[in-house]
């Protein structure tokens, strides 16, 4: 399964979910869905924005676990 480590990256960058939401341009409800792992899919454009804002790689946000 794919695990979203958004909260870990946010903690590392000392950034709140509200700040990320404002800087990436995604609604809080959508970010919350992504953070809780309820999202079915993520667009490349969204992933790109998150990686640019958090200065990280896609693999830092997404992780595959058995």
């Amino acid at each position: 399964m794919i695990v979203v480590n958004l909260d870990v990256m946010l903690a590392k960058r000392k950034m709140s979910l509200t700040e990320l939401s404002e800087r990436v341009g995604i609604t809080m409800s959508n970010l919350s869905i992504l953070k809780k792992g309820k999202a079915k899919a993520i667009r490349f454009s969204t992933l790109e924005s998150i990686c640019r804002t958090l200065d990280c790689q896609p693999g830092d946000v997404l992780e595959y676990r058995d």
């Binding site: 869905i33 999202a39 079915k40 993520i42």
Partner: peptide
């Protein structure tokens, strides 16, 4: 529709 709704 649900999949589209849950695509971020």
């Amino acid at each position: 529709k649900e999949e589209s709704k849950l695509t971020i």
